[in-house]
Design a protein around this nucleic acid. Structure first.
Lengths: 143, 143
DNA sequence: ATACTTGCAAATTTTTTGCACTGGA
DNA sequence: TCCAGTGCAAAAAATTTGCAAGTAT
């Protein structure tokens, strides 16, 4: 909806932000992206990061994750996959090789909407949070 | 996690907030709930509304919806159902009678998490946004 | 050259919190 | 009675925006 009909320019800020979001596999927040890109462009502003994350999400080059908190998280991997979120620490992991068949027409008949997509996310307890004595105690915890 | 092991009291503010969220079928934001309860308790504070929405969501009496924007929305209907969100106007509708079978163990094996639940939401275009000339032109638009 | 983009700062929006007082169980 | 809950106000957190200067195309 934003930026419609206009040209967009690949500035070095935008390119770096895109690269960083793609490199960071932990679904970073805007602030985490800001901290990351600052290492390369120290004078970049947080506003620029927000503006570019919006543009990139709008154009589909990155994905904005849904969340029940108040901080957006982004994913540089836009290939078809779902996520699992740890209910204990909030960590998000990718879940590939799983898909849900959606009969859009049937759903549309049920609700009156023209269904164009869906969002599926799982909740669970990650290996690190399952307990110190588990088989997964060697998994690094980031918080 | 919050309020664990302690007593909670059903004050008239908390009861009213719960009633209003249950009555409002349009998945209101905290501010919309505030405006609604103010008609009955004019001196209630926004902080109280936030605190109670948190408590009620924590105890499972209402649900906090996931979203990709920056304002939490709540649902007073905690029965098992999914949502459809309009990509044009943001309106959210309930979708009952649809369910997804989740093989938690198989998923767990795929990602290492102990899967305990899931969130599924559909995106679509609502009747009112499908266009003025559609069969749905008589559906009320709220924005 | 044009107009999209940036850095900076200020402003907005949304949510949280400290504190003294109140009231539910 | 007693401590969770409230109103109020201030603060914090998250995001957006106005503007003059910079830069991709």
């Amino acid at each position: 909806m934003k930026n419609s009909g206009r040209n967009s320019r690949m500035t070095k800020q935008r390119r770096l932000i895109l690269e960083e979001v793609r490199r960071m596999m932990d679904h970073p927040t805007a602030d985490e992206v800001y901290e990351a890109v600052r290492k390369t462009i120290p004078r970049i502003s947080l506003g620029t990061v927000y503006r570019n994350l919006d543009v990139l999400a709008e154009s589909g080059e990155i994905a904005r994750l849904k969340n029940s908190g108040n901080q957006s998280r982004f994913d540089g991997d836009t290939s078809n996959h779902y996520h699992v979120r740890c209910t204990e620490c909030g960590r998000i992991a990718n879940l590939k090789g799983v898909d849900v068949e959606v009969d859009g027409l049937q759903l549309g008949a049920a609700c009156g909407f023209e269904v164009v997509g869906h969002w599926l996310e799982f909740q669970g307890v990650c290996p690190a949070c399952k307990g110190g004595r588990s088989l997964f105690e060697n998994v690094k915890r980031t918080n």
